[in-house]
């Protein structure tokens, strides 16, 4: 069962990659990368259960925690064209 789910995740990864390659806007690419990250977390978790070595879950946990940071950086890049803008002076 985990095997079938892992194959489904792989197929979804392949399809998501199409969107990342095609664009057309930058936002579409970021969206695709974001989903790709989710799918990778699931693949790693499923693979851990497939091979019965659940310590791989640490990697999935790491991705769940810090995949977000890349997206935040991209957003900041979109809005300010620079990662260093303070932008929080108004509160």
């Amino acid at each position: 069962m985990t095997g079938a789910a892992a194959l489904a995740v792989l197929a979804a990864m392949g399809i998501t990659l199409i969107r990342a390659l095609r664009g057309p806007t930058l936002y579409d690419r970021v969206l695709a990368v974001n989903s790709f990250g989710t799918l990778t977390v699931l693949l790693i978790a499923l693979h851990g259960f497939l091979t019965e070595r659940p310590e791989f879950l640490d990697i999935a946990l790491l991705y769940a925690l810090i995949n977000f940071i890349g997206t935040v950086a991209v957003l900041k890049f979109f809005e300010y064209g620079d990662l260093g803008a303070t932008g929080s002076t108004e509160d």
Partner: peptide
Amino acid sequence: ILYALVFGT
């Protein structure tokens, strides 16, 4: 870095 990105450098 996440802190710096969200709340400003």
